[in-house]
């Protein structure tokens, strides 16, 4: 079973994402901000990370930049999932090493399509 880390400061979004991803046969861990996510990754690198942008303590972009410098940090496939839906933000995320990008609001089909896109399912 593939591991997916869901990083979002909204518990509602984490719950929705968890439900969708569990149906897609992922084992889910959750983090409320970038720092928690980084700590989780240092313990065990997940296969996939669904990543919000705007979060307290450490935002998604900062987390991604740090993650890609960690040993083994190039391995997880990172899919941004954020309300930041303009070209400039998307381009910055891709440059920082994001593999895909979901613009909120999202639904089951979009998550599934994007995870297929990057070969996770």
């Amino acid at each position: 079973m593939k591991q997916c880390l869901v990083v979002d400061d909204s518990s509602v979004i984490r719950k929705v994402a968890r439900r969708i991803l569990e149906d897609l046969q992922f084992q889910i861990t959750e983090a409320e901000d970038g720092q928690q996510a980084l700590d989780a990754c240092r313990k065990a690198m997940p296969d996939a990370i669904l990543l919000d942008w705007n979060m307290p303590v450490m935002d998604g972009l900062e987390f991604l930049t740090s993650l890609r410098r960690e040993p083994g940090g190039e391995k997880p496939i990172v899919v941004f999932c954020t309300t930041e839906n303009d070209v400039a933000h998307i381009a910055r995320a891709i440059r920082a090493g994001a593999n895909e990008y979901i613009m909120k609001p999202f639904d089951r089909e979009i998550v599934e399509a994007k995870f297929q896109e990057v070969g996770l399912i």
């Binding site: 979901i102 979009i110 399509a113």
Partner: peptide, 23 residues
């Protein structure tokens, strides 16, 4: 719409072949 461009279209291709107009 944002929904339509997120089904099947890799994000790189969205950036490459589309121009954003609001939503």
């Amino acid at each position: 719409s944002q929904f339509e461009v997120q089904r099947g279209l890799p994000i790189q291709m969205l950036l490459k072949y589309f121009a954003q107009q609001g939503d």
